[in-house]
Computed example of a mutant assay.
Amino acid sequence: MSHTAHIPSHRKPRRSATKVALRAGVAGGVLSTLAVAAAAGTANAAEPVTETIEMPTLSADLSAQIAHSADVTQQAADSYESRAEQDAAASKAAKQAKEDQAQAEKKAEAKRKAEAAAKKKAEQERASRSTERTNLSTQSTGGGSSASSSDSVAPPASGSVGSVISFLKSQLGDAYVMGASGPNAWDCSSLVQAAFKQAGVDLPRVSQDQSTMGTEVGTSNLQVGDILYWGGKGSAYHVGVYIGNGQYLDAANPSKGVVIQDLSGYPASGAVRVL
């Protein structure tokens, strides 16, 4: 027996061919798997992965509900906007109405004051004319065609009934000539027209038109300065002026000229008042 027979051999056990082949196959498979993974990794690194999320498909009912909701929302917005515009318009209208009312009240007040002042002035003028007529009537005296009665009347203020009477009496004795207009010859209507012009009153030229002027008054309610007419209103053929005490002054006719006469001898058809 060899002197080394009892010492275990240091040589590694021999592997069987079957085991070696099996291990080689496993190793090859692993390497193949790694190679495939590496290739896949390389490809993924070269091309980014995009994930697509598929949205759910809207049904017809859901679409209609969404559209209806949008319409309702829009209608509400339009309603709020319209209401805001209406409120703004109403506020503006109320403000304008208030301003208009204030302006109207101001105008009405001014009109009332003007009317009151005009009424007061008219009353004062009527009172003044009434007093003047009374004085003239008292001072007038009968005397046919005599001019002496004018001497007792004080010169009246311009623009009054007195200025008319004063002018007429200053023409006493002038001639009557048909169509004449003064200064020393007159017909009936030209004398009346010239007399009232002294008071600022423009009368028509002919007696027919003069009989339609002013306010119609009865012959029983005459005042100094009233225009008397003979014939129909609007068709009068003669005119004169009442001077009080039942008398009138006129350019009578060619034989008399400008005179003072009594109404009792030649009653007038009517009378008008322009002052």
Rank of each mutant, 00 (worst) to 15 (best):
Q101H: 08
A154W: 01
Y242L: 04
A45S: 06
N221C: 04
K111A: 14
Y176S: 07
A93H: 00
K92V: 11
A268T: 05
A108G: 11
L136C: 06
K113H: 06
Y176C: 12
I53F: 12
N135L: 07
A39E: 04
T141L: 01
I66P: 10
I53A: 10
V201P: 07
T219R: 00
V241K: 01
T18A: 14
V201A: 12
Q210N: 05
S91N: 14
W230L: 03
S32R: 03
Q124M: 10
I66Y: 06
G144Y: 08
Q198W: 04
T138G: 04
Y266I: 02
T57L: 04
G232W: 14
R11V: 15
A180W: 04
A77N: 08
S160P: 06
A76G: 06
G218H: 00
Y266S: 10
G246H: 05
N184T: 12
H3K: 04
S128Y: 11
E47H: 08
Q96M: 15
T215A: 15
Q208R: 04
W186T: 07
K98W: 09
G25E: 05
T212N: 08
S166C: 03
A39T: 11
V259Y: 09
P56V: 12
Q223N: 14
A27H: 07
A45D: 09
N135V: 14
D250Q: 05
K113Y: 05
N135Y: 05
L222K: 04
Q86K: 10
S59G: 11
T42L: 13
E81I: 14
S264Y: 14
D78A: 06
E99M: 12
